[in-house]
Design a protein around this nucleic acid. Sequence first.
DNA 1: CAATGTTACGATACACGTAATCATA
DNA 2: TATGATTACGTGTATCGTAACATTG
Lengths: 92, 92
Amino acid sequence: MSLTHIQSFVAVAEECNVSRAARRLHLTQPPLTRHIQALEDELGARLFERTRGGMRLLPAGEAFLCHARRILAEVDAALLTVRDVAGSRTGG
Amino acid sequence: MSLTHIQSFVAVAEECNVSRAARRLHLTQPPLTRHIQALEDELGARLFERTRGGMRLLPAGEAFLCHARRILAEVDAALLTVRDVAGSRTGG
DNA sequence: CAATGTTACGATACACGTAATCATA
DNA sequence: TATGATTACGTGTATCGTAACATTG
């Protein structure tokens, strides 16, 4: 599991479409497909249903999406907090 | 930023010692040193004070530690939740 | 010499993008 | 043919571990 895979998953879940998610992430489709496959493999569960028009979340995928967003939010918070603490070192 | 770097950071913070953290992570010292350096570089802040006997958290490091633990906990929770949802698919 | 962390360097593994493939209508 | 995802394959980068280095007592 990696943060990159998690970001890819969230993008695909929100776009319901690998191609659009790829554009949004400035990536091509193949790596994105592989990210999803790696997650599904590691979690031992299918996260998306592959439909004619794109990707649709399965129950396991919806469950994972909640956590995925919290993980990314926590990473953002970590970045902000550390920069804040370090930036205010002398500023008081 | 990667989950591996975050795991390394937490181990070093808890052991106050790169060598012990490396053993705990089944790794050697150099990659661990580089993980910490990469984090410090990316965050733009020094996380540890290098002392004679090992590593000691600086304020920015303590701030980051809180978030780091939450990120890892959230990842664990994601694993458990997804496996639970997927496992109970037919079990009712 | 013994213990700490760091840097240099070569081998391996990972991840990308292009191109080709499968499926649907 | 057009749109969607996936697989095959070559290449560039990242990451590891060993070995060498610097610091401290």
